Simulated assay, not measured.
Amino acid sequence: MHIPKAPTSALALEPFAPALEEALCPSPDYDVSRWLYVPNRYSEYRYILGTRGSRPLICIGINPSTAAPDALDPTLQSVERIAHSNGYDSFLMFNVYAQRATRPDDMEKTYNPALHEENRKAFRYLLSLSPAPAVWAAWGNIIMKRDYLLDCMADFAADGAAAGARWFTAGPLLKSGHPHHPLYLKRDTALLDFDIEAYLAKQIGKCM
């Protein structure tokens, strides 16, 4: 269980670029030839956790919990299984908001624009790893926990469009119109095309 100790605005955030540079260096804690972990140590926030490969699947959840290299939680274990089942050789877990909180209800109620901007740099980096980025929307109904999450997601959709990303969901959408969370999906669940722009237009429209 991870409960935030303080608002992220009270933290000395490590910018994404130096955190990435450090994460690409050898670590005594895990095999950097297999894992990408940014920052490369456990902290109150996480930009990226995933495996390395030539055909990665970027998975977007809401916010990080306790997972780390060689210690994936059940959600990330499911993400890895589904990525492999759909022909990808690696997965890259990204989140709409980078603050760690095992329970989404513990996420800060007011978003930190500095954290979001560094998280956005992380997403652009992930998109740059492939000439045809594949992005799996996997946040479930949790995206409604905080008003700012859809707005953050709109920024990532714009970044994805600029990079020519193709968006997917695992199986059909929920009755609420949101994509499935990975946790209880079967390992062979097929990825389906997802219109991120239409989704955001509908969901943001509901909130206005």
Rank of each mutant, 00 (worst) to 15 (best):
I3C: 08
I3T: 15
L11Q: 08
L11R: 10
P18K: 01
L24K: 08
S27W: 03
D29A: 09
Y30G: 05
V32G: 05
E44W: 01
I48Y: 00
I48K: 03
G50H: 02
G50L: 04
P56V: 02
I60Q: 09
I60A: 12
G61S: 10
S65N: 06
A68Q: 13
A68S: 12
A71C: 12
L72M: 08
P74T: 02
T75K: 08
L76G: 05
L76A: 07
R81S: 15
I82S: 07
H84F: 10
G87L: 12
D89G: 13
F91Y: 10
L92D: 12
R103S: 15
P104E: 03
D106E: 12
M107K: 01
L115D: 09
N119S: 13
A122C: 09
F123Q: 06
Y125K: 00
S128W: 01
P133L: 04
A134G: 10
A134H: 15
K145A: 13
K145P: 07
D155Q: 12
A158Q: 14
G164P: 12
A165N: 09
A165K: 09
W167A: 08
T169M: 08
G171L: 04
L174V: 03
H181Y: 08
L183T: 06
L185F: 03
K186Q: 11
D193Y: 06
D193Q: 09
I196W: 03
I196E: 11
Q203P: 13
Q203V: 14
G205W: 06
M208G: 11
